[in-house]
């Protein structure tokens, strides 16, 4: 897992620190500005193609909401009520201008504002994903360190076995196995449902465990294997490791203080890139555990051909992924002060 950071600039040595800071800040701001500007066409593209895809699906919101017993006349009347009889581009333009004014539109099914639907659902999905990532990282890093410390040792082989199992099992299958063991047989944790932290924090955490593990275990295994491989690469081939060893640093110190820090770049990239996949996993897991997150709202909206909600949810997912990648890029410079973005003077 070699580290490749876009638009990296390492400043020339010998500059005074104050000047360096000022110089570095401005390019970073410019870098963030440029990236944010790039977000605009990305989000427009995402919204447009989602709109196109939803319109290309057979049937309409009116047909889906009225069910199989509705006559074509009833469907046509309801479509007119929902405004679906308007031309595609007119509906898209109305939606787009609304978004530019901060209005994501109104759900065709419930009549509620899309913003309020997503604001209700987003914290749920965010909590689920955040816990899954944090737990996966907290377990993956020590496991990878143990594995890299003694390649082919017991810890490495155990980690390999766990990773193979975790990577082989689909998260929805894992979810069902976990539910069977921990909810049905042991009755320790709920099989479904959701309680917000505000209602009951303890129950919220209980509701969170199985879905978070279902999403997090494959991640954990993935992170462990990648980090182990990168750590080994660092330990075996990098000059700074040889130097550290020559200076008398112990193997754990070299591993944790030197190799891990470098390997973290790759891990951050993977975590950021993985977020899209993770959101996809959350959609399925939310459905299995009946968790009222964005994924479930989106699936339900797709089922109902509720275009404003689907487009709003996809837009939110796109924003999250784009911002996560931006944060990852910014984190590089935090982790390694030598890294500066877009400094034209270098």
């Amino acid at each position: 897992m070699s580290t490749s950071v876009p638009q990296l600039r390492v400043p020339l040595a010998g500059r005074r620190s104050g000047r360096l800071t000022r110089a570095a800040r401005a390019p970073l701001a410019r870098f963030i500005g440029r990236r944010l500007l790039m977000v605009i066409p990305v989000l427009w593209g995402v919204s447009f193609f989602t709109f196109v895809a939803m319109n290309a699906l057979p049937g309409s919101a009116a047909q889906s909401l009225l069910g199989p017993n509705a006559t074509p006349q009833e469907v046509a009347r309801f479509e007119a009520q929902l405004g679906l009889d308007q031309p595609f581009f007119e509906r898209y333009w109305d939606w787009l201008t609304g978004v530019l004014h901060g209005d994501l539109g109104t759900s065709l099914a419930s009549g509620a504002s899309v913003s309020s639907i997503l604001l209700d659902a987003l914290p749920v999905t965010a909590e689920l994903i955040l816990v899954a990532i944090v737990v996966a990282l907290l377990v993956a890093i020590p496991l990878a360190l143990l594995a890299a410390r003694r390649p082919n040792g017991i810890a490495d082989r155990a980690g390999l076995f766990l990773s193979m199992v975790g990577l082989s099992i689909a998260n929805y299958v894992l979810a069902l196995v976990l539910v069977y063991i921990f909810a049905v047989k042991l009755r320790w944790l709920p099989a479904m449902g959701w309680t917000t932290p505000g209602e009951d924090l303890g129950q919220n955490l209980r509701c969170l465990v199985l879905p978070a593990v279902s999403i997090g275990l494959p991640l954990l295994c993935f992170y462990t294997r990648l980090l182990r491989a990168d750590l080994l690469e660092q330990m075996q081939g990098e000059d700074y490791v040889v130097t550290a060893r020559a200076k008398g640093a112990g193997p754990w110190r070299v591993l944790v203080h030197h190799a891990l820090r470098n390997s973290t770049f790759g891990l951050i990239t993977i975590v950021a890139l993985n977020l899209g996949t993770l959101l996809g996993g959350a959609v399925i897991v939310e459905q299995i555990f009946q968790i009222p997150g964005v994924g479930r709202a989106m699936l339900s909206a797709i089922d109902n051909r509720d275009i404003p909600v689907v487009t709003g949810a996809v837009l939110v997912f796109a924003v999250i992924v784009v911002l996560a990648n931006l944060v990852a890029d910014i984190l590089y410079s935090v982790l390694d002060p030598r890294i500066r973005y877009g400094d034209a003077r270098t």
Partner: peptide, 9 residues
């Protein structure tokens, strides 16, 4: 299937 699990749980 999920209903069965929820009832059992």
């Amino acid at each position: 299937e999920s209903a069965l699990q929820a009832l059992q749980a």
